[in-house]
Design a protein around this nucleic acid. Structure first.
Lengths: 110, 110
DNA sequence: CAGTATCCCAAAGGATACTG
DNA sequence: CAGTATCCTTTGGGATACTG
């Protein structure tokens, strides 16, 4: 129980540091089982700023949850997709979503 | 898929706003199936400041995840325990922890 | 098209001292 | 004992303009 001294040794906290941000779960959900381009992601999430989207994608790549594929074309093309690790997160996100739905269903706008 | 415009309509994001903080999952875990006093929690988590602990507890109470019981004694005694909703979160936290353990096991100090 | 660069703001969290 | 009050630093995120 050492994480009581240092929360970042707690597996929950470490996972949260990955998916706990405002946009990361949504980005993962937008990628899902597709390969998708930067611009398409931006279009799916009009409220995210350019800077934040690119930073989040970098984070996710560094964590090994998504793969970035750059094609040598003009205009440039970059595609993202989930890695096996990224895919393995999806069921966890579903559990989290299920809890959110069953306990705060009133405020949902679908 | 409206949450793409407003992440707080996303059930994952809403759940994260509850358990995504630095301390809330740890607090819930420290309470677990016990009733526990403020001072005891502070002692279990020496790294959390007084102010933050009391704020987090208030948040969790407002959310209906814990119950606060105040006894009219001197010195004062206050005890906290999980509500049914709070308990229902524990399996979700376990899933999250399991993922964290299986994907980042190297950095764990137990 | 897929980003950077720059500047800015709000919110989270922390340290310390104090109180009914 | 169980908190408040005050002040401060850090972090996350956003707006906008620019570029290879």
């Amino acid at each position: 129980m050492r994480f009581i001294d240092n929360p970042f040794q707690c597996p929950v906290t470490r996972t949260m540091s990955i998916i706990g941000g405002k946009w990361k779960p949504i980005i993962l959900n937008c990628i899902a089982d597709k390969t998708i381009r930067f611009g398409k992601l931006n279009q799916l999430m009009p409220a995210i700023s350019n800077k934040v989207l690119s930073k989040e994608l970098k984070d996710l790549e560094t964590l090994g949850l998504i793969e970035r594929m750059e094609y040598d074309e003009l205009p440039p093309r970059v595609e993202y997709k989930l890695t096996a690790a990224g895919l393995s997160l999806m069921p966890v996100l579903m559990e989290v979503a299920n809890w959110g739905n069953s306990h705060f269903a009133k405020s949902i706008v679908s």
